[in-house]
Amino acid sequence: MFNLLHRLSSPPSFFAFAGRALPWLLGGALLLIAAGCYQGLVVAPADYQQGDSYRIMFVHVPSAWMSLFIYMVMAAAGAIALVWRIKLAEVIASASAPIGASFTFLTLVTGALWGKPMWGAWWVWDARLTSELILLFLYLGYMGLESAIPDKRSAARATAILALVGSVNIPIIHFSVEWWNTLHQGATVTKLGAPSIHPSMLLPLLLMAVGFKLFYFANLLVRARCQMLEREQRSHWVSTLIKEAA
């Protein structure tokens, strides 16, 4: 297992592996997202309180889960990069940031589009919304700091520290609906005990969640391949690869 991981973390084998895994990940993601949209928009019944507006949940909640998950990947990869200086970890952390920022943006905007008809306001300064907005600023700050440092390796170290410090925000977002009085509803799926959501609504939610996750991995591989080519353009393996293709 460790041997396999070690082999995979070398840039040339990662580059080849990513190329092979990509079509499967993307295909799976598209299939699951299409099925999730069909189940969520057509098959699932309207909510007895919120009518059809609740269907925004099938985009909003998986995006929100991804915004937290990607941040944790970024912070973990950053920690690995800090301690062991593994290039692949640096690349994964840096390639994750724009995808995480995208999902955080999507969470905030779909939340506003759901909040307006249900709460009567696009935005309220409550704990859940504010901490998610801070998450967006953390992602943007990460990307800004990275682009401000020309040397990739020192940029990776500085941004890893930022990601690790910012990770205190993750439990705050998750527990914000329990710690503070808020308009935002509590957890219905990720709580202890049985989820308080009907199976016909849980199915599209899970399809979309897994679809988004596969999409993240596929997207991560494309971005990581691109960064690998750039960082390693003078290395032997890249020139061999290019010579074969030329």
Partner: peptide
């Protein structure tokens, strides 16, 4: 019509489509 919530529901899904496509 989405039970009167067409604007909110379809804008959400369209935005998701745009964000994912650009990311790809």
């Amino acid at each position: 019509h989405m039970g009167g919530y067409a604007f909110y529901v379809w804008t959400s899904y369209a935005l998701a489509l745009v964000v994912l496509s650009l990311n790809w």
